[in-house]
Amino acid sequence: MDRAFFATLSDVARAAIAAELERGLVADNKLEHGFDPVTEADRAAERALRGAIEAAFPDHGIWGEEYGWTREGAATVWSLDPVDGTRALVCGLPSWAVLVGLLEGDRHIGGMIDLPALNETLVGIDGETRRNGERVRSSGCTALADARLSTTDPHLFAGPEWDAFERVRSASRVTRFGLDAMAYARVATGDIDLVVENSLKRHDYDALIAVVRGAGGHVGDWQGGSDFAPGRIVAAASRSLYDQAVEVLNG
């Protein structure tokens, strides 16, 4: 796999989304209670991504947020979140992203965080992350007291999870909210040091792991391991910072 194909995926998704933005977005709500929007831009982008992958790699599996599985059980799988941060998109904010992860078995071997509103594409592959072609590195921050922390929405934490996050927030230097996948991009570029989140699905995190790791950061679960299925993710600028955050999360 080379970076050129990720550039192709960025191009086709951006074109599909731009066409829907030109028509005007209408957000449907996935939830009976609360608000989880989906738009035709989400669906059109995933169709475009699937079409490009199917043409180039007809034996690969595809998992996407909007259309589910194609060839489930394939050795190589693409994981698609065609618009991560749809709330940001419908509010005219630039933090929404196109996320594409590439896995062999359980190994995250490639990932793309594409930020069309910022004309910025980060691709992590072969252990190296580049933004618009230039290599990027995490800050290397090793101390929680110095860390710039982010989470998308603190209201997603409740009960013991809220208490755990609050311990980390209180121990960190500064906290910013509402960045969606852009927060992980900023860990890779050295501008944010730590992201702590819960309730993520595989299409939310599969792309992020290779991008952060390729920039020298560390990604794991809340227990110090790599069981991402429960959706509790910690992305850190260094393994030392990750270990400190996990220790504080667990009291």
Score class of each variant (00 low, 15 high):
residue 45 A to L: 07
residue 231 G to T: 04
residue 144 L to D: 00
residue 177 F to H: 10
residue 230 P to Y: 01
residue 206 D to G: 03
residue 54 E to N: 15
residue 52 A to G: 13
residue 5 F to W: 09
residue 95 S to H: 11
residue 125 I to H: 02
residue 35 F to Q: 10
residue 158 A to S: 13
residue 108 H to N: 13
residue 198 N to M: 11
residue 250 N to A: 11
residue 19 A to T: 02
residue 145 A to V: 14
residue 128 E to M: 07
residue 164 A to S: 15
residue 3 R to Y: 14
residue 86 T to H: 10
residue 8 T to F: 02
residue 93 L to C: 01
residue 61 G to Q: 10
residue 110 G to L: 11
residue 10 S to H: 09
residue 147 A to G: 14
residue 243 D to A: 11
residue 158 A to C: 05
residue 190 G to M: 04
residue 234 V to G: 14
residue 63 W to C: 08
residue 131 R to P: 10
residue 217 G to P: 02
residue 132 N to Y: 01
residue 77 V to E: 13
residue 224 G to V: 04
residue 129 T to Q: 04
residue 21 L to Q: 13
residue 45 A to Y: 08
residue 93 L to Y: 04
residue 28 D to Y: 03
residue 197 E to W: 01
residue 218 H to Y: 03
residue 160 P to T: 05
residue 112 M to V: 11
residue 131 R to K: 05
residue 136 V to W: 01
residue 213 R to S: 15
residue 125 I to Q: 05
residue 72 E to A: 14
residue 75 A to D: 15
residue 225 G to W: 01
residue 55 A to L: 07
residue 225 G to A: 03
residue 248 V to I: 08
residue 246 V to D: 12
residue 139 S to W: 09
residue 152 T to N: 14
residue 236 A to K: 06
residue 162 W to C: 14
residue 123 V to H: 02
residue 11 D to V: 01
residue 208 L to C: 00
residue 143 A to G: 11
residue 194 L to F: 01
residue 214 G to S: 07
residue 241 L to A: 08
residue 84 D to G: 12
residue 93 L to S: 02
residue 166 E to N: 15
residue 38 V to C: 08
